[in-house]
Design a protein around this nucleic acid. Structure first.
Lengths: 207, 207
DNA sequence: CGCCTTGTTGACACCAGTCAATTCACGTGG
DNA sequence: CCACGTGAATTGACTGGTGTCAACAAGGCG
């Protein structure tokens, strides 16, 4: 798939779920006044649309922000799995639970962190998530987002994102050149963001 | 349980999950500087701590904000259910999916709605959720939150919550006296909040 | 009766939004 | 190889929504 393709549209009633194999995608809502809020950033390995299996109708859309390759899993298959493979079902549940943990952290960032801290927190989160799937080299990774898209993710204006990014650069915390983001001082960035890496870690359950 | 009791503490590794039978509870995080963000409001009927079954360690706390009665479900029971009752398992999944839908709406509100719209949206959501469990009379319900707690929910200061509530009153949209909140003009409130009631509705799946 | 929480109000500060112009990075076509 | 076009990044000036601080009112309760 190309850049800026819709994977799911608002109002859809999908009959299959999507696994993101390579590339980045975003989940978002658009308001009447044209403002957009991105509610999730999906990286390779993410089950992008699992809850579409459970809810009636999509209340939001998902689109690629880079060229992507995806896998499709028919809901029928998911149903069979949920009836015959309880431990796989649990894995799906864990996937949803992790999404949920990320959502909670985003809420904390939106509500109670400054734009600076919020941005730092997101970068910490992405470094960790991308490291898990082997997409980092040392403390850097590809961040194929425009500053405007980053603003829609953070709930900030594009102009203010720019100011914040400049400040992060000036303080020697990051470098962001082209699509490559380098975390230059991870510990301090985590400290600023009050980032707790354990919120992404999962219980390794028997079975 | 009394008011302001902890149901779950940050860092806990619970061995049972909680069903809220009567009363209200909140899920929250506290930052170093003392700021608090409430990430979920739980009403009677909610499965408060389902994901504690799936994740290793709680990254947040849950406490009652009214006297509550709760039911405890050992994780062992949940595991048995997940292995032998796929359709019940699905119900649990749906519960998580609904939480997730609410979280996304909160993110949109936090990021892209004004304080006024955000507050209106929350009131619309609560009216609908409480109606589903039969806790409304006409367009009113019990809202046992202080304005400070409401601020921690919305990501606003207590002072600003007060200003917003005054404005909602002045425009004839709500009444809030004691713990009783009355929605006086639901349609207009929904319109202001850009509230879409379908985001809480669920697919009624065979089995 | 006096404390303590909650709600309310006003003055003021500041973070972040908006608007508009400019620069920069690139890709394309002549 | 260079002129242009386009989207992204950057900058500055100004606005405005929300936070902070502080004081006061209104109840509820021991």
């Amino acid at each position: 798939m190309e850049r800026d393709d819709d994977l799911v549209r608002e109002g859809d009633r999908p009959s299959e779920s999507i696994v993101l194999i390579t590339g980045f995608a975003v989940r978002y809502n658009v308001l009447r006044n044209g403002k957009r809020q991105i509610t999730a950033l999906h990286v390779p390995g993410d089950f992008v649309d699992l809850h579409g299996f459970l809810v009636k109708e999509m209340d939001h859309a998902v689109m690629t922000i880079t060229p992507c390759t995806v896998g499709m899993v028919p809901h029928e298959t998911l149903r069979e799995i949920s009836e015959t493979h309880p431990h796989l079902t649990r894995l799906l549940g864990v996937s949803i639970a992790v999404d949920s943990a990320i959502h909670r952290q985003w809420l904390v960032s939106m509500g109670r962190r400054s734009a600076f801290e919020h941005t730092a927190h997101l970068f910490c989160e992405l470094l960790l998530r991308l490291r898990v799937v082997g997409l980092t080299t040392d403390d850097s990774f590809q961040l194929p987002l425009t500053q405007a898209e980053l603003g829609d993710t953070l709930g900030l204006s594009a102009v203010h994102v720019n100011r914040v990014v400049q400040e992060l650069r000036k303080q020697g915390l990051i470098t962001w050149y082209g699509e490559t983001l380098v975390i230059k001082d991870g510990p301090r960035l985590q400290q600023i963001a009050e980032f707790d890496p354990t919120f992404l870690s999962l219980k390794t359950e028997p079975r």
